[in-house]
Amino acid sequence: MRHEITNIRRNHLTHDTTESIYGVKLDQGDHLLINALITYLDMGVTYFYFDHDLAEREIETIHPLYKESYIRTRDCSKDDPLLQLPPY
């Protein structure tokens, strides 16, 4: 299954990492908290969004040893365009 993310919700609007994302809104209008999204991603469900160039970008989970798990754009090393999605 594939689902499009259209909006994000962040804890700290001034925090410039995807670790600040705690919720997402999908194109069907559903809202997911980050823990549910991470669970679904780890189960093999695909989530994606369209960046400012209208390129489709997939989301992946990151599970650091000493921090909370979070999401980011697959194959993105710096300045994650996921943070450019509009808030809700």
Rank of each mutant, 00 (worst) to 15 (best):
D42N: 15
C76K: 02
I21W: 00
R2S: 15
R9D: 11
A55E: 15
L26A: 03
E60G: 01
R74I: 03
R2C: 07
D30Y: 11
A55N: 14
T39F: 07
I8F: 00
R57C: 15
I5M: 04
F48K: 01
H15C: 08
H63N: 14
A36D: 15
G44N: 09
P86H: 04
M1N: 12
D30W: 03
D16G: 09
F50Q: 11
S69M: 01
F48R: 07
L83V: 02
L32A: 03
I34K: 13
I34H: 03
L33Y: 12
I5L: 08
N7Y: 03
L41C: 11
A36Q: 11
T14D: 14
P81H: 06
K67Y: 09
R74D: 11
T73R: 03
E56T: 09
H52W: 06
Y22T: 01
K67P: 00
F50R: 13
Y70A: 07
I38D: 09
L33C: 05
S77Q: 10
T73W: 07
H63F: 08
Q28C: 13
Y40K: 13
R74Y: 11
E58C: 08
R10A: 08
D53Q: 15
Q84Y: 08
L32D: 06
R57S: 04
G23T: 00
D27T: 05
H52I: 10
I62Q: 11
E19I: 05
F50C: 07
D79W: 00
Y66C: 06
N11R: 13
T18D: 04
N11M: 09
V24L: 07
E68Y: 09
A36I: 12
D53C: 06
I5K: 01
T14V: 06
Y40M: 13
L83A: 03
I21G: 10
E4C: 07
N35Q: 15
M43N: 14
E60H: 02
